[in-house]
């Protein structure tokens, strides 16, 4: 009884703060996943540029150098905890340039580049998973690497990596809590404040626990739904004549004039 009454008191007193914290957490996860995904796509496209023996030497060297830098970035961020990255970047900038970054912006930056390092590998895997023959076919009709990627390869790669990207999104909802170490007022941070003020640790952390669960669980369901939608219909309409299909019981009307 004691427990529930503390829960409701904390909600009364800190409800709006907790709501704001939840908002920040969701913001961190969405921005981090979106920017991280964009970083991953760019790196994925770059890393799969075909380098032929006919490519001019200076270009090859330039390509290699930049490729090395990208690999260094990926390895560095995958091999250190985000909590430590946050500290090093936030206090490093303060130390080197004498500026204190806006904590939220620093948090968004860190979660984005951290996610980018993971996404780069996920995207690369997705590109490799699309059979090489299709890339050859794009080449054989004269497409550039960028056209081939944009219209043929990436749409399929992205479909294939949707589960992994969704997973990264879920991870970001939860792991954004480590950004509390640099004072980003996300859900964990505000809960800690509530706990510190009331000395009721269990109720104070029970609330974010439920919120995290509801967020992650519902996002998982939404992503599943989106994946199913991306696959499209199993049927198609015969052009010009009567409608037909794959399964006899799934007839559809012709829609083409």
């Amino acid at each position: 009884m004691e427990f529930w009454s503390w829960v409701s008191r904390i909600l009364e007193q800190y409800g709006s703060l907790i709501l704001e914290g939840t908002g920040i957490t969701v913001l961190l996860a969405i921005v981090g996943t979106a920017i991280g995904f964009a970083i991953g796509l760019l790196i994925g496209i770059y890393k799969t540029i075909p380098i032929k023996s006919s490519t001019p030497m200076p270009l090859k060297i330039l390509y290699k150098i930049f490729n090395f830098l990208l690999s260094a970035y990926i390895e560095l961020f995958r091999s250190t905890p985000m909590m430590v990255q946050a500290m090093v970047i936030f206090y490093g900038v303060a130390y080197a340039f004498g500026i204190t970054l806006n904590r939220l912006i620093a948090g968004l930056f860190i979660i984005s580049i951290n996610t980018g390092a993971y996404m780069a590998e996920i995207v690369r895997g997705g590109i490799i998973s699309v059979d090489k023959g299709q890339a050859e076919a794009t080449h054989s009709i004269g497409m550039t690497h960028l056209q081939s990627m944009s219209y043929i390869i990436l749409p399929q790669a992205i479909r294939n990596i949707m589960p992994a990207v969704g997973n990264q999104f879920i991870i970001n909802i939860k792991d954004s809590c480590v950004l509390s170490v640099i004072g980003v007022s996300e859900l964990f941070f505000v809960s800690k404040s509530a706990a510190g003020a009331t000395f009721q640790f269990f109720p104070a952390f029970f609330i974010p626990c439920v919120i995290y669960f509801v967020l992650c669980f519902s996002i998982t369901q939404i992503l599943r739904y989106l994946e199913r939608r991306m696959d499209g219909a199993d049927t198609y309409t015969i052009y010009g004549t009567e409608p037909v299909i794959n399964g006899a019981d799934t007839l559809k009307r012709g829609d083409v004039k």
Binding site: D131, G133, Q134, E136, A137, T138, H139, S140, I141, G142
Partner: peptide, 18 residues
Amino acid sequence: KYCAKVGMVFQQFNLFNN
């Protein structure tokens, strides 16, 4: 441009699946 004007038909078809 050259590739666009000399086409290729592959053993494995290689249609664009998307």
